[in-house]
Computed example of a mutant assay.
Amino acid sequence: MHDLTATGDPVLAEDEIRVEVGVFLKEGTLALAKDGQILAPFHALVKFNFSADGPWLADSVKFSGKASDGTSAVLAVDLLNDTFDGARAGLPESIWEVVALVATSAGDIGITYSYTSGG
C-alpha cells in the first residue's frame, strides 16, 4: 500500500474547463477509413470544452481500435473548424452520431450539447 497525501484547496480555472468522456463501441458497428487505412474502433473519447456563452463544445474525438492489419491504432478527428466557431465541414455523419452518443452519456455529469453537423 502507498501513502498518499494531498494539500491545498483546488479551484477550477473557469476559462480552461475541459472534460473528456469515453464510450465503448460495439464491435463491427463502425469502420473508419483514412488515407487507405481502415480502423474498426471499439472506443471513442470526446473532448468537450466549456463555453461561457452556451453549451459545451465537442472539439475533438479520438477513436481507438484495430487497423485492417490487426494492429492497434488510433485516429484523432478535430471537430471544430479552423476558426473554432463552428463544426468542421465534410466530416462523415457517423462521426457526429458517435459524438452525439457520447454527449448523451455525458449528460449524467451535467454536460449539455447542441448537435449541428458540419455538413
Rank of each mutant, 00 (worst) to 15 (best):
S60A: 12
L30V: 13
I38R: 15
A67R: 07
A76T: 14
S60L: 08
A58V: 04
D35T: 07
D15A: 02
S72F: 11
D9S: 15
N49D: 10
A58G: 13
I38A: 09
Y115P: 09
I38F: 06
A100K: 14
S72M: 05
S60K: 15
S68T: 06
L45H: 06
G28I: 02
E16H: 13
L79V: 00
G107I: 00
I111K: 02
T71W: 05
F63K: 02
V74C: 08
V61H: 04
L101V: 05
P10I: 02
S117V: 03
P41I: 00
L45N: 14
G119N: 14
V21F: 00
D69S: 10
T112E: 13
A31C: 05
Y115L: 15
E14V: 12
A31V: 10
V21E: 00
T7C: 06
L80W: 05
Q37M: 07
T116Q: 12
A76W: 04
A73M: 12
S60Q: 14
V74P: 01
L57N: 11
T83D: 14
L39A: 07
V19Q: 10
S64N: 12
W56D: 02
P55R: 04
D15H: 12
D15S: 08
S60G: 10
L57G: 02
L12Q: 05
A106S: 14
T104P: 03
D85C: 04
A73Q: 10
V99S: 01
N81E: 09
T29H: 09
G119V: 06
D78R: 14
F84D: 13
D78P: 07
F42A: 08
P10W: 11
S105H: 12
D108Q: 10
L80S: 06
I111Q: 02
W96D: 02
S117L: 04
L79M: 07
A103L: 02
V98R: 01
S72K: 07
L30Y: 11
G8P: 07
P55K: 09
D9W: 05
L12K: 08
G70S: 08
A6K: 12
A13K: 11
N81V: 03
L25Q: 08
V102G: 01
E27A: 15
L57M: 10
F50T: 00
S64T: 10
D53G: 15
A40I: 01
K34V: 09
V19D: 04
L57K: 15
V74T: 10
G65H: 04
N81I: 02
S68A: 15
K66T: 03
E14Q: 14
P92W: 01
V77T: 01
R88M: 13
K26Q: 15
E97M: 07
